[in-house]
Design a protein around this nucleic acid. Structure first.
Length: 356
DNA sequence: AACACGGGGGT
DNA sequence: ACCCCAGTGTT
């Protein structure tokens, strides 16, 4: 049996497999660092099937870094709507402006310069540097954690700094010295297609002769991961306020979820609240004082499950008497109802808007 | 080192 | 119910 420490054989086996099995993706075959960058950011924590169309649309709308830098953040977020982790879009936009300001609009060429851009961490910097410029940096993502923890039978929890350091060192040591870009992409494809989280296809694996976990019957036990803490429950009460043909929205600010996206005015309570309790809340009074002529009815309840919080959302439709004064001047934006679709909103708010 | 940040899909 | 996914920034 070959030794898994025989590094040349590992990357050679890997590239031989990749040459036959690599996937045909819209960002494959390019050495344009901008296109690689966009694809890498979109695919962070996102499945290819889900990200594919977003990538195509994004490249069509912002074909180069200068066009992205010149865009309005609202338009970038609108293009990102529905993808989640919206800081990716905000950082993408900010980083494009950094490229213009600090690198004269030319995408940086070195790992450390690439790493200095907003939203680009060690993984993405290594991916761009290796795929675009063939720089010898191992791109270590969730796939690589899984493949290498199995190949070398490493049971250090991978979601700890020690585990990450350990896998990264191994990844760097087996990186093909002449084809780091191909090697990195091959590792990702192998993790996505063969060395999958559940029911891996070990019989198809180029490493089946040298995989320590397979030899020791531990494939299903790896990688080891510490449990995340439980999710937080939140209670949102949205008000779809109608005033003639106008509605009111506002932009979320602060460090909370969905920053810079738009939504209906909302009151958050720290526990489930019926309408009577809601009326007593400070947020409600602030929104609707002074007392005005209006009708309110509860129209929808949605449970929105995210990775780290569960949001219980109630929607109320509020009709303000046209004789009343406009609600403008409370941080609200008054827009015609038919223009709602122009604003970037969360998936949760979108679910409601679809039903209007 | 721990936590925050979306959303979708698989078992 | 629980896990997974081409991670990064902040505290």
């Amino acid at each position: 049996m070959k030794n898994p420490d025989n590094n040349l054989s590992i990357s050679t086996l890997l590239l031989r497999w990749y040459d036959v099995h690599k996937r045909d993706l819209p960002w494959r075959g390019t050495h344009d660092p901008y296109a690689i960058w966009i694809s890498e950011i979109i695919l962070q924590q996102t499945r290819i099937q889900q990200g594919w169309d977003y990538f195509v649309r994004f490249m069509r709308r912002f074909p180069d870094v200068v066009s992205l830098a010149q865009a309005h953040e609202d338009d970038v977020l609108k293009l990102w709507q529905g993808l989640g982790y919206y800081s990716r879009a905000r950082n993408l936009h900010a980083a494009a402006q950094q490229v213009v300001d600090r690198f004269g609009g030319q995408f940086p060429r070195t790992y450390s310069d690439i790493l200095s851009l907003k939203g680009i961490g060690e993984y993405t910097a290594a991916a761009i540097a290796s795929i675009a410029y063939n720089e010898p940096y191992a791109a270590v993502d969730g796939n690589v954690f899984r493949v290498l923890s199995r190949l070398f039978d490493i049971d250090t929890p991978i979601n700890t700094p020690v585990g990450k350091k350990q896998i990264t060192a191994v990844a760097q040591s087996i990186l093909h010295p002449r084809f780091p870009g191909l090697h990195n992409q091959a590792m990702m494809d192998l993790g996505a297609m063969v060395c999958t989280p559940a029911q891996p296809e070990c019989v198809e694996c180029p490493f089946q002769e040298i995989c320590l976990a397979l030899a020791r019957n531990k494939v299903a036990d790896l990688p080891v991961k510490n449990r995340l803490k439980t999710v937080r429950n939140r209670y949102f009460h949205y008000f779809h306020i109608r005033y003639g043909d106008k509605v009111y929205i506002r932009k979320r600010i602060g460090r909370d979820i969905w920053k810079n996206l738009y939504e209906f005015p909302l009151v958050e309570t720290d526990a489930p609240a019926d309408f009577a309790a809601l009326q007593d809340s400070d947020g409600f009074k602030q929104l609707f004082s002074p007392v005005m002529q209006m009708t309110i009815r509860h129209t929808m309840h949605l449970k929105h499950v995210l990775s780290h919080q569960v949001i219980y959302a109630d929607f109320y439709q509020v009709d303000i008497d046209p004789a009343e004064q406009s609600l403008q001047g409370r941080g609200l934006i008054e827009i015609p109802g038919y223009r709602l679709g122009e604003y970037a909103v969360s998936r949760l708010v979108h679910k409601y808007i679809e039903t209007i």
